[in-house]
Design a protein around this nucleic acid. Sequence first.
RNA 1: GCGCCUGUAGCUCAGUUGGAUAGAGCACCCGCCUUCUAAGCGGGCGGUCGCUGGUUCGAAUCCAGCCGGGCGCGCCA
Length: 579
Amino acid sequence: MTILQQLETRLAAALADVLGEPARAIVVPAADLRFGDYQSNAAMVLAKQRKTNPRTLAEDVISKIDLAGIATAEIAGPGFINFRVLSDAYAARAMALLNDEKLGVPASGGGRTVVVDFSAPNVAKPMHVGHIRSTIIGDSLARIARFLGYRVITDNHIGDWGTQFGMILHGWKTMRDDEALERDPIAELVRVYRMVNVAAKADPAVLENCKTELVKLQAGDAENLAIWQQCIDVSKRGLEKIYTTLDVTFDHWLGESFFNDMLGPLVDEFLAKGIARESAGAVCVFSDGQGKPEDDPFRVHREEGWTDNPAIIRKADGGFLYATTDLATLQYRIDKWRADEIWYVVGVPQQLHFRQIFAAAERWGKTGNFRHVAFGSILGEDRKLMKTRSGENVGLIEVLDEAVERAAKVIAEKNPDLEGAKEIAEIVGIGAVKFAELSQNRLTDYVFAWDRMLALQGDTAPYLQYSHVRIRSIFRKLDAFFDATAAEIVLNEPEEIHLARLHARFGELLPQVLEDFRPNLLANYLLELARAFHSFFEACPVLKSDEPQRSSRLALCELTGRVLATGLGLLGIKCPVRM
RNA sequence: GCGCCUGUAGCUCAGUUGGAUAGAGCACCCGCCUUCUAAGCGGGCGGUCGCUGGUUCGAAUCCAGCCGGGCGCGCCA
């Protein structure tokens, strides 16, 4: 049990004793260490409900509460109950964590199956920095869920069947440069795509041509299918390379094309069950009339008032759409994979779309915990959304390369003789990019800036990695094997106590990350831990101290290293041994 | 027009869901390498939490109304 849970249990018991009935006892880490380690405002909340004096209630609770071996409690301000955890309790907790592979993290996932849908790039379109958020946040959430005991299935729902293929096919046939294709197939594909885009904008005839090619492809034209397959293969190879660099993996790559055959039957079923009906030649899911119009994803307010805003699942020309594929995908995940939950890590502009999909799925009888894990947009210098079609956006590969290059430069300055410098530059550079993304609240928009994303000092991945490096450096200098699992920890200095305090919080914090899908909570925690370690490192000599302090401090270092490495691992960031 | 997201230090951002004197990093200033890696540590400067009301013991957080930014709203994904 975590220290927080122990405090809550004992507080609840004392409250029940005083009030004569069970009551909720919420304990949180104290806002300020001067108030103690943990605090509860339960007395204020409950006194308000009962119209009694909060301080009196708090006093009664404190006189009854049994905190033996854990903490001391006192009342402050209008009725806060502040807990100061005994350093022996922290020491005991640290020793327990050293013998726990999960570092005190509970299995809150309970074996539930969750499908994490993230990254999902469009094939044959270049990945720019705007695509990084879904990939990095989704990967991290999948790792955390796995660690918390979920059965996790990651799925890269690539856009391999959209209307962009009309353009690609036309470009392939009319503008392809075979030599360039040989040299760098992805770049050539991207070049062709961009050129067609420009041409189609200028000339309606080109656009018409693209549409014809698309219709032929969807009708099963052999030549177009072959070209399509070739484009997919080339694109996938390019994507794999990026994912390898990012250390991101998927259990499945079920793109849009995979669900193609299921779309017709799906629409028929929707029609037969009355979930959808025809309107102006298209098949649409309309509002079921339940609930308030402002909460109804199938209704929208225009000048005239509230009007229908249906989800179209088949166009008047018989073609299928995004919504159709997403419904088929959802069905597959529920029926084939037995998913209890599906998390869609997709940008906030898609919010309405997912509200419609989830509502339609519910009417369809597909149940589960469906969550749109939305994130804010990455804006260009002009504060406008980055667009895929225009070529002026910063490419994802470009950013990653630059990150590694900058890291390499710092290594060359600080540690020119470093062995394996190239690999370490990669770990540090890529880590910096990932951390810049993950340490931020996922919902805020931000303007892309090189220096922000590639910073190597301050609140960054290298800061965390560096603390790990300092720890490993201590153990390298150690003459004999050190068994941390058997070590006796005794906490004296404030820096030692603070380290142990944070160790204890790891298991309390991690489940919270998934409550609202906020990896930045973990990122901020790790910064706090690293900060605590650097202070400890400066203030408390390890190897030069005498026993039993020496062993105790070594054990603290070992535990810190494990928590850091584990935490970084959950963010998808690696830990170098030297840097 | 209506809906969603957002506005916090010069800059970039946190803020445990209503708690105590609002926190970090960058930048700037002052100190610290003969001691386990200075990508570090210690200290300083810096705030009308967009604005105005309201709810209450208590508001950056909840409610209402304005102002600014981003996005979405029938046959693209």
